[in-house]
């Protein structure tokens, strides 16, 4: 019963806020628990900011998914930025190149059920996260 996804451009600070609000709306619609909503919106906020700051902008797409047993939300973040050269390092707690806390990627991964990242130096980055209703 997946509805077509909604795609938002991520090119400025305001866009990050917009992504957060869209994710929140969809999360409420599929009846995610309050804690899970908060986790998902927080993860989306981290990743949208990464797309903006490290990827030089890109887009985010939010869609509902259904695996037959449970409903969930899938969000894709994509940019055509420099990509990530050392993925293991980037996923380490506390590692940062942008002066942040280094919790964006690693933290976001802990907040969702599924986390998939495709990246290569010079080829941009695509991150797909999924959160299922409990």
């Amino acid at each position: 019963m997946s509805e077509p996804g909604q795609r938002l451009e991520v090119a400025s600070d305001q866009d990050v806020v917009r992504v957060r609000q869209l994710v929140r709306t969809v999360a409420v619609a599929v009846k995610l628990s309050l804690v899970d909503q908060t986790k998902l919106v927080t993860a989306a906020s981290e990743l949208a900011r990464n797309t903006l700051v490290y990827g030089g902008g890109g887009w985010a797409e939010v869609e509902t998914v259904d695996n037959g047993r449970r409903k969930g939300i899938r969000i894709v973040f994509a940019d055509e930025g420099p990509g990530i050269a050392d993925l293991d390092l980037a996923l380490t707690d506390g590692y940062t190149t942008g002066g942040g806390l280094g919790l964006g990627l690693s933290g976001a991964r802990r907040l969702v059920d599924e986390f998939d990242i495709v990246t290569e130096a010079g080829q941009g980055t695509t991150i797909t996260i999924t959160k299922w209703c409990r």
Partner: peptide, 14 residues
């Protein structure tokens, strides 16, 4: 701070 926010921050590692 709301409970859900606190739980999320702990999970985030902050």
């Amino acid at each position: 701070m709301r409970p859900a926010v606190a739980i999320t921050l702990v999970e985030l590692g902050l």
